[in-house]
Simulated scan of single mutants.
Amino acid sequence: MPKTGGCQCGRVRYRAKVDPADAYLCHCRMCQRATGGVSIAFVNAQRVDVTWESGPDWYASSPIARRPFCSACGTPLGFQFADDGAKMDLTVGSFDDPSDFHPKHHFGVESMHEAWLDTSHLPRYRADEYDVLSQKWEESGASPPEN
Rank of each mutant, 00 (worst) to 15 (best):
E110A: 15
E129H: 15
R67C: 04
Y125F: 10
P68H: 06
M88E: 11
N44Y: 01
P123Y: 10
P76K: 01
A65H: 00
L133H: 06
A82M: 12
F95V: 04
Y130A: 15
A82H: 12
V132Y: 14
F69T: 00
L133K: 12
S54K: 12
P68Q: 08
H106G: 07
M88F: 05
G37Y: 03
P68A: 13
Q46E: 09
S62D: 04
E53R: 10
C73P: 03
P68D: 11
V38K: 05
P56D: 08
R124N: 11
H113Y: 07
F79I: 12
Y59L: 14
F81D: 04
L77Y: 05
V109Y: 01
D97Q: 00
F95R: 03
G78F: 03
E53P: 08
K104N: 03
F95P: 00
D49R: 04
D84N: 08
S111H: 13
G36S: 03
R126T: 15
S61Y: 12
A65Q: 01
W137F: 13
R33E: 13
R29H: 11
F42G: 01
G37H: 04
P98L: 04
V132P: 07
F69K: 10
F79L: 11
Q32D: 11
L117D: 01
L77H: 04
A41L: 06
E114K: 10
G108P: 05
Y130K: 13
S134F: 10
E138D: 04
R124H: 15
A34H: 07
Y130N: 15
E138I: 00
R124Y: 11
S94F: 11
D100V: 04
Y24F: 12
S120R: 13
S71V: 02
G108I: 09
S94W: 00
F79C: 12
A41E: 00
G55P: 06
F81V: 01
L117K: 05
P103I: 14
H105C: 06
V109H: 02
F107D: 03
I40N: 14
